[in-house]
Amino acid sequence: MTSVARVSSRPLWRQPWVINSAVTAASVLVCLLLLPSRIPGMELLGVAPHWLLIWVVAWSIKRNQWQGAVAGLVLGLLQDAMTSPHPTHTLSLIVVGVLTARLQKQRYLQEDIVSVALIVFAMAVIAETVLALQISFNQLVSADSLYPPLGSIWLYHQRIALSSAILSSLWAPALYYPLNRWWDRYSSES
């Protein structure tokens, strides 16, 4: 056990790291449950905000690239579970996690809500592009691919990348703000 756990005399479920992990896991669960729902006002051209991507950005923004990559892997596996594992979502979310963590935020961006929305906008476009690349690759390599020809894949990509980026960046503060506040409080406590 770590030194934190050894020193504190509180019961296990009152220790800060347990509460923090519970809150983190609960926030992921909320995102997962929001994914299949189409609540009025959260939909643009049949596309809903990419909640898992917003979560990965919120997580990676103040952490290093390895932590970002692990978050991308875990949430990507979860999204695979909810849709279909081919093509995998882990790749796009890992890319998002690593890129967000590596951004030179202190130089170019402040940690306010507007810049988070901007990061989410860019990352949503990148994530959809990674998925489109995977689908195109599958289409080019395997002869009996079920996917449509390249032209229509990329036409469709334009549409969903744009609507997903707009919606996700608009909804990003709703998730980023409470999560960030919680993690700040936790890190100042411990």
Binding site: L29, L33, L75
Partner: peptide, 20 residues
């Protein structure tokens, strides 16, 4: 985290959809 995500994936996200 990774192993529970993997387990959920192996079960096609049944638990999440039940909760939903």
């Amino acid at each position: 985290a990774v192993s529970s995500a993997w387990l959920l994936r192996a079960s096609d996200g049944a638990l999440i959809y039940e909760a939903y």
